[in-house]
């Protein structure tokens, strides 16, 4: 469950061709890192995977993204269903302006996932991100009072509470302090068994630490992708070599 297949994906912002003919397979239960310099289209690619790009009106998307044998861009496809199955952890933690409890409970509530045992779901998700012990006696205080690192973990719990199959992480550690960032990283690693994870990062070392497979993007094009080991040890393209040795980017 949760394998993604990107086929001939093209994205335009107005006249600017932001993603050029992307083709890639993202295997299930693996961490796939998308790396590249800023402005290369990493985030665009990520947001095209759960159709969040459509919020921007100038955007035009062509091509297909298949999730378990079905194109998520098919005309009659229900967007909310796609977004339920493909969750997103944003760059900056953005807790909803409600209580800690409601933040986690929001998703299950609207989807009608849990009649009666909402408390258990909230507890389970908060435990999964290691936040339960810290917040158990202030579940109903505003989520914005948490520290930034805690907020990001809360956002992760919120995303997981709707039981997605794919987890997209958009530089989710970039705006955190090093210790919280490490915390999120190890969390992501533990999630690998249950989710397909696509991780955008500009931090090559992070990709090295986490990734099973790597996509390297450059100016809107997919330069190279493959298993992490081969990618880092024997990059095929000259551009990749230069980027990994930090000559460019």
């Amino acid at each position: 469950m949760g394998a993604l297949s990107i086929r001939d994906l093209n994205v335009w912002y107005g006249k600017q061709h932001a993603l050029k003919q992307i083709n890639a397979e993202i295997a299930q239960n693996q961490i796939t890192a998308v790396i590249g310099p800023s402005g290369c289209g990493k985030s665009t690619l990520l947001k095209s995977l759960n159709r969040l790009l459509e919020l921007n009106e100038q955007v035009r998307v062509e091509g297909q993204v298949w999730l378990d044998g079905e194109d998520i861009y098919r005309r009659d496809r229900d967007v909310t269903e796609v977004r339920t199955r493909i969750g997103l952890l944003a760059q900056k933690p953005f807790p909803l302006p409600m209580s800690i409890y409601d933040n986690v409970a929001y998703g299950p509530r609207i989807h009608g996932l849990a009649r009666g045992n909402l408390d258990q779901i909230v507890r389970a998700q908060l435990e999964a991100v290691g936040l339960w012990a810290e917040v158990r006696d202030r579940l109903h205080s505003p989520a914005t009072r948490l520290s930034v690192g805690q907020q990001q973990r809360l956002c992760l719990a919120r995303t997981l509470a709707v039981e997605p199959e794919v987890l997209l992480c958009d530089e989710s550690t970039a705006s955190l302090d090093p210790i919280s960032a490490r915390g999120i990283e190890s969390l992501i690693r533990t999630l690998r068994d249950r989710y397909t994870i696509v991780l955008v990062t500009h931090d090559i070392d992070q990709a090295r630490r986490l990734a099973d497979a790597v996509l390297f993007m450059w100016l809107g094009e997919l330069v190279e992708y493959g298993p992490a080991q081969r990618f880092f040890e024997q990059p095929q393209e000259a551009l990749t070599q230069q980027y990994l040795t930090r000559e460019i980017g």
Partner: peptide
């Protein structure tokens, strides 16, 4: 906020 809510489905 809008993005966060939408990505929850």
């Amino acid at each position: 906020m809008r993005e966060a809510l939408l990505s929850l489905g």
